[in-house]
Simulated scan of single mutants.
Amino acid sequence: MADADPQRDLRHSAEPVGDPIAAEAAPAAATPVIDAAPAEPAHKRRWLRPLLLVSVPIAIAGGGGYLWLTGGQFVSTDNAYVQQDKVSVSSDVAGRVVQVAVRENQPVHAGDLLFRIDPEPYRIAVSQANAAIASAQVALTSLRADFAGTGADIQAARDAIVNAQQDYQRQSELMRQGFTTRARLEQSQHALEQARAQLANATSNAAEARAKLATGSAVPGANPAIAAAQVQRDRASLDLGRTAVRAPVNGTISQSDRLQVGAMMVTGLPAVSIVANGRSWVEANFKETDLNHMRVGQPAEVSFDAYPGLKLRGHVQSIGAGTGSEFSVLPAQNATGNWVKVTQRVPVRVAIDEKSPRQLIAGQSADVRVDVRSAR
């Protein structure tokens, strides 16, 4: 037929004639084959499954055994901080700051000048005390002269008594013989009484002068007025020396921003702080549930967030007498009934037993692990 497809006729003519199974296999043989990865041998898959079934339980059992054996031998916390002695330095005298000799973070030694207060008012006080001593010395000289004069007054009064006594006896004898008047006898008697009164007055003045020259048991051998003036001078000299404020310990200057020339210094008001060198410890806040086996003296290991890899040996120096909340400004009050039990933290001081190769700074974060095996 003219409408027949010549390609179709060609395909039909190429098809084999005979076994249908062979005919079905012929196109498959003509299809191109893509290379695939070689299949995993069956014997490898055969032992992998038993290995996993055995090794995983062994690993879990080993990890659990290790945790069981080592559990409870150490207690640790990361709520720990480096502590150092901090000395707040204030002035013992009031006045205006005229010199500042230190700056922030400057290392100082004990005795170094920190700042100086205007010394002129205290120099004037020393001069006033010296003048008071001189005045007391002049007064003492005058008292000694007065005391010496009382001796002459006493002798004169005694002589006057002798004369008045003799005149009275003479007038009495004349009165008995009738050669004098009673008025004259009474006059001589009055003169005798006056002489006796003068002696008593002179004796009293001498005792008073002697008392003013006496020394007390508190300052034997020294006149009280002079001793008081000397004490006043010593106090003024001490205040003058305290106008130069010096470092009490070796350390590093801190919080010196408020120390400025021209500032008015008030007695007892902290002016600068010094972080002391050579003594550092760690205050670790352990949970109260960790304290069952913790004892003073147990070894500890301290590591620091600022220095990865640095670990220092230490020991438990003391265990706090109260929790952190107990000594807080606003302690917890659970009397209202709305109470939720919270694990408390107890401060534990850990002493550092070895010198650190890196500088320890007050307030640094630290991790502490305490070996409690000795108490178990």
Rank of each mutant, 00 (worst) to 15 (best):
P16E: 09
A332K: 01
D146Q: 11
D367M: 06
I154C: 06
Q137H: 06
T267M: 02
I58H: 03
R123H: 00
P57M: 08
G18F: 05
V231H: 11
D239C: 04
D118A: 00
P308H: 01
V266C: 08
R376E: 10
G320A: 04
L269K: 14
V340Q: 11
A139R: 02
D239G: 06
R176V: 12
D371N: 12
V282N: 04
A29P: 06
A23P: 11
Q177L: 10
V340C: 00
E208M: 10
V296A: 12
E104V: 10
W47N: 08
E104T: 01
R295A: 14
F304P: 05
Q99N: 09
E104M: 03
T243H: 00
W339D: 07
V275I: 15
G363C: 03
R242L: 13
A14R: 15
S13G: 13
A29M: 15
M294D: 08
V370M: 02
A28H: 10
R313S: 10
G151V: 12
S76Q: 09
V87N: 02
A218I: 11
S256R: 00
V231T: 15
K341S: 15
V282K: 03
T243A: 05
P50S: 05
T343W: 00
I226K: 01
Q260I: 13
G18M: 05
L52P: 07
R349V: 11
V346E: 03
S256V: 11
A351N: 05
G65F: 09
V342L: 04
N277I: 13
Y81S: 11
S273P: 06
A156M: 01
Q169E: 10
Q83M: 11
V102H: 00
A195V: 06
A29K: 11
R123T: 08
T181H: 01
Q73L: 13
F327R: 00
V272P: 03
T289S: 15
Y66M: 12
Q344S: 08
E24S: 14
R210P: 08
L269H: 12
E15L: 15
I21A: 15
G268C: 03
G363F: 07
D3L: 13
A362S: 15
N130M: 03
T323Y: 09
A39N: 09
D5P: 04
A23C: 12
V275R: 01
L259D: 02
Q169L: 09
S318T: 05
A36I: 11
E326L: 07
R258T: 13
Y122V: 02
V368D: 02
G151E: 14
N250Y: 08
R373Q: 08
S280H: 14
